[in-house]
Design a protein around this nucleic acid. Structure first.
Length: 497
RNA sequence: GCCCCCAUCGUCUAGCGGCCCAGGACGUGGCCCUCUCAAGGCCAAAACGGGGGUUCGAGUCCCCCUGGGGGCACCA
């Protein structure tokens, strides 16, 4: 079943009508993984035959998003390949060729019904509570008569002539055989009156012409699955392995992700769109690790890099059930992979977020603070929040917060004074040189280390929460540390008057 | 209304008839570590939707119910 011995040719075929989101990214991922796993090819095809719906810039975002995630394709509209063109809008004649073939074989027919008439038929069916389907008016027009009307230039579409009796059985890798009663099949439109093929024909033709071995697509195609298999068979081709992946459900698992849910995710600081996730400080490694597990599972060790996924991915563990998105889990994997980054890598990735937050960035300092921030970041966006202190020229602590735990202002002032006198005696303040004497001082004053350190932390960073105190002092530097602690002394003294 | 699909902890999942009084992960609670916050370590609570079968034996196979999801365009 999980045949990884034969090279797979797979494709990710988005239409440039929207943004790259979680669901499509996961489909792309699975395609990519199977291709790499089997030593096959990953193809990118743009399904842009519906010009009315094409969105300006969508294709660019799609490609950029995939590249950012690290899912580079082997063949595609921009990189070419032996089966091009890879944009459906450039393959019109190919589809027409097969549409004509189908008509010649009596497996498809021209239909002259107007959209208006079709809408009327639908209304009637709705009123009679029947299933919605084409009523077959043009199905029985004699081929010669139909051909004549076409030759005369009469507006028409091409419909597939679906069988009306018996049953059709198709096979999905995750669901096994699916058998439908042919009476429920519809004569779907293959070619619009404009001459452009619809998905039903275009995708089937392209998958064949491009030698696709496995078709990963969303479960929303399950309804037309028999139709598509029938078209493949009518054309006399071998079927690919069909894999219908379930959709993602909203957090909590009740209902599909809707636009409203997407907005709510944004309000919570998350997003279902890849580009937004990048801006929110999520890294490809984290996102990929998160989505690969929604629909595919392993017994244990969920933590994986892309390479590890390639080594472990298989078809047998794909799961047909819908999965609810859990952004908390994304946070977990993102943090996990941030911690896996090298110092230089993390420094480079944090940089734009410091710039965005308005801090004067400095590559050396970024590398210096990276190890301190690394275990504290859930997202890269947290970096300027946690590490902003290293770029601030001055701090303005809240005097009240300078008072040590269970201490008075005068006590705290005295402790700070003593700290200054000891620290100023050091030629350099580092973790090694400063911590021992400060611990000793705490003991001498009858304080817990945490009490003294707390005062110094607020004095030096202006915050109650910061990276480890002495490492922080080391980076801020002796002179500035002294200046800040002295400032704290003054602040504390002003308090008790 | 009609058609199709799915069903294990709150969530993502492992399980492919006995190895399961159901394993891992997120989240949650507790403890440890600890200069704060994290990170890390340990522990805990937490599930086979219900009912019928099949079988010596069912989370695993079959049926029904329930629940959830998808589809029914000259969109993809």
């Amino acid at each position: 079943m999980a045949d990884t011995s034969q090279p797979a040719r797979v494709r990710f075929a988005p239409s440039p009508t929207g943004r790259l989101h979680l669901g499509s990214a996961r489909t792309a991922l699975y395609n990519y993984l199977l291709a790499r796993r089997t030593g096959g090819q990953f193809i990118l095809r743009i399904e842009d035959t519906d010009f009315k719906r094409t969105v300006e810039g969508a294709e660019d975002e799609l490609l950029a998003g995939l590249r950012w995630l690290g899912l580079q394709w082997d063949e595609g509209p921009d990189v070419g390949g032996p089966c091009g063109p890879y944009r459906q809008s450039e393959r019109k004649e190919i589809y027409l060729k097969y549409a004509r073939q189908l008509v010649e074989r009596g497996r498809a027919y021209p239909c002259f019904c107007t959209p208006e008439r079709l809408a009327r038929v639908r209304q009637e069916q709705l009123k009679r509570k029947e299933s919605l389907h084409y009523d077959g008016t043009c199905r029985n027009i004699p081929p010669e008569a139909a051909a004549r009307r076409v030759a005369d230039g009469e507006q028409h579409v091409i419909r597939f002539k679906a069988p009306q009796e018996g049953t059709t059985t198709v096979h999905d890798l995750l669901r096994g055989d699916i058998t439908v009663d042919n009476r429920n099949l519809d004569d779907a439109i293959l070619v619009k009156s404009t001459g452009w093929a619809l998905y039903h024909l275009a995708a089937i033709v392209d998958d064949h012409e491009m030698g696709i071995t496995h078709v990963f697509r969303s479960s929303e195609w399950l309804g037309t699955f028999p139709l598509h298999a029938l078209i493949v068979r009518a054309l006399g081709w071998a079927e690919p392995t069909w894999v219908h992946l379930s959709v993602f459900l909203k957090p909590g698992g009740k209902g599909k992700m809707s636009k409203r849910d997407a907005e709510r995710a944004r309000d919570d600081g998350y997003s279902i769109f890849i580009k937004d996730l990048e801006a929110l400080g999520y890294i490809p490694e984290g996102i990929l690790n998160w989505i690969v597990l929604m629909g595919w599972g392993t017994a244990e060790n969920d933590e994986m890099s892309l390479d590890e996924m390639i080594a472990r991915f298989d078809l047998a563990h794909l799961n047909p059930a819908p999965a609810a998105v859990d952004f908390k889990k994304l946070d977990h994997f993102n943090g996990l992979h941030i911690r896996r980054l090298s110092v230089d890598d993390l420094a480079a990735r944090m940089k734009p977020f410091f710039i965005e937050a308005g801090y004067p960035v400095d590559d050396d300092k970024l590398r210096q603070i990276a190890p301190l921030l690394q275990p504290r970041l859930k997202t890269l966006r947290d970096a300027p929040i946690v590490g902003g202190v290293f770029f601030e020229e001055t701090v303005s602590p809240n005097p009240e917060e300078l008072i040590g735990k269970k201490m008075t202002a005068p006590d705290s002032a005295e402790a700070a004074r003593r700290a200054v006198s000891i620290l100023s005696g050091l030629t350099e303040i580092t973790h090694e040189t400063a911590e021992p004497p400060m611990r000793a001082l705490a003991g001498e004053l009858g304080l817990k280390a945490g009490q003294l350190f707390g005062i110094l932390r607020v004095a030096v960073t202006g915050r109650k929460v910061s990276p480890p105190l002495f490492e922080t002092m080391e980076i801020i530097g002796r002179d500035e540390v002294l200046r800040r602690v002295e400032q704290a002394v003054a602040l504390l003294e002003s308090l008790d008057s």
